[in-house]
């Protein structure tokens, strides 16, 4: 393996959160990653819910009771909010990849739409679940 000469200063290898000023498009990007992690963690919970709901009638009743319990509602609310945000911002990212809304102002505006959709989704879902 050839030896690589390292520069004397350490160059950033990845997004360096500590050096950038916080801005809405950056928050939107970080929130996309955070909600993505939450949704990945929801996979086992989804399987738990799916096996319960499609099992015997007793399993169904037990699963419904769990979903309506406080931890159940909180998990459904958190993951549902994450899903709404990740979906809206994911569409935004695909539009950005296609070359739309790349100007700084429209980046900020669309980031505002994503975050707004997440907040609105959280409120509507909260109203539905409680």
């Amino acid at each position: 393996m050839p030896t690589v000469k390292r520069p004397s200063y350490s160059r950033p290898l990845s997004p360096r959160l500590a050096v950038y000023r916080w801005q809405l498009p950056m928050i939107a990007s970080l929130a996309h990653r955070a909600t993505g992690i939450i949704l990945a963690l929801f996979v086992p919970v989804y399987l738990f819910i799916l096996t319960g709901l499609t099992g015997s009638p007793d399993d169904f009743i037990r699963q419904m009771a769990w979903m309506h319990s406080v931890p159940g509602r909180l998990i459904l609310w958190l993951t549902g909010t994450a899903l709404i945000y990740h979906l809206v911002n994911g569409i935004r990212f695909i539009l950005l990849d296609a070359g739309w809304f790349e100007a700084r102002d429209s980046m900020r505006l669309t980031a505002r739409i994503s975050v707004g959709a997440g907040v609105l989704g959280a409120l509507l879902l909260g109203g539905f679940l409680w």
Binding site: I49, L53, M64, M67, L76, F128
Partner: peptide
């Protein structure tokens, strides 16, 4: 991105179904 589009089309159906059962 390809999988994102498939998930974006199908996941809302699954989630709405879950809410309808809830």
């Amino acid at each position: 991105r390809l999988t994102a589009i498939v998930v974006a089309l199908l996941m809302p159906l699954a989630y709405l179904l879950l809410l309808a059962v809830y």
